[in-house]
């Protein structure tokens, strides 16, 4: 199956959980530490997300995601650790570079936030069919057009890559070198642009017509083939998530009043 979506159905508990519960989970994981200002809450949610990803058997898939963001996190450590304005207490030095306690602590906080957000998003994205996610949003009044664009991108981009391959072959067979150093490849790329744009314009117009004749612009109230996925467990999960957010909010207000 050619799709760029990271989702894969593994039949786990997380796959069966309603998209709403997972969306609400992101909200909880982000808002509770932010509202309460308790560092440990952030760490606890990171641990919880990791645990969830482990039970969902998708922990491995988060590694590339972490790898990409790891670079950003490293930059944060270097910049804040060395140059933060409040830096006063040196901790260690690497050659001429001195790292300070205040900056490192600040970087640590930022990294906690990033990790928390990333992992909770992974819980949603790696275990939810994109179309289910959008469908649940459309049911709640989200624009079907926007939803369509979002979902179809996952399927249509791989198809476009295929067209791109054919176009590349057509030029290669006229003697154009498409392999080799960066300059050769850059030169080879130019002739590909107009056929790619052209063919995707034609395809897009045809697809738009095909959608039109299948009532995409109908003003009727949409119905849904698949019933809403919501298990009894979802009810408890969502109640718990809402309770957590509410109590964090309560805690914040309490602190503010005192």
């Amino acid at each position: 199956m050619k799709s760029i979506s990271l989702y894969e159905d593994k039949g786990t508990f997380l796959n069966r959980t309603a998209p709403e519960s997972k969306l609400l989970y992101i909200l909880t994981a982000v808002s509770v530490p932010a509202l309460t200002g308790i560092e440990w809450a952030g760490i606890a949610f990171i641990a919880l997300s990791a645990l969830l990803l482990l039970t969902g058997r998708v922990l491995k898939k988060t590694l590339p995601v972490l790898g990409v963001s790891g670079f950003i996190m490293l930059t944060v450590v270097v910049i804040q650790g060395m140059f933060r304005r409040e830096n006063m207490t040196p901790v260690f030095s690497l050659g001429p570079c001195v790292f300070y306690r205040e900056g490192l602590y600040f970087a640590f906080q930022i990294i906690l936030h990033i990790l928390n957000i990333l992992l909770s998003f992974c819980v949603l994205m790696l275990t939810t069919k994109p179309s289910d996610l959008i469908e649940s949003l459309v049911r709640r009044g989200f624009s079907p057009r926007f939803g369509y664009v979002f979902v179809s991108v996952f399927q249509i981009i791989p198809q476009m890559t295929e067209t791109m391959g054919i176009i590349m072959d057509a030029q290669r067979s006229r003697g154009m070198e498409t392999e080799g150093n960066l300059l050769t490849r850059a030169k080879a790329f130019l002739p590909l642009i107009s056929p790619v744009v052209m063919s995707s314009l034609v395809n897009t117009r045809e697809r738009a017509m095909a959608l039109e004749v299948r009532g995409f612009n109908s003003r009727c109230k949409k119905s849904f083939l698949n019933p809403r996925v919501k298990t009894a467990a979802d009810r408890y999960i969502q109640a718990m998530e809402l309770a957590l957010i509410a109590s964090a909010l309560g805690w914040r207000i309490l602190l503010w009043l005192m």
Partner: peptide, 20 residues
């Protein structure tokens, strides 16, 4: 690719994939 192209030519199915 260039060497082979001078010996064997190929017309692709869809002209839009080729013309630029």
């Amino acid at each position: 690719a260039a060497k082979l192209a001078s010996r064997i030519g190929m017309v692709f199915q869809n002209p839009n994939d080729q013309i630029f």
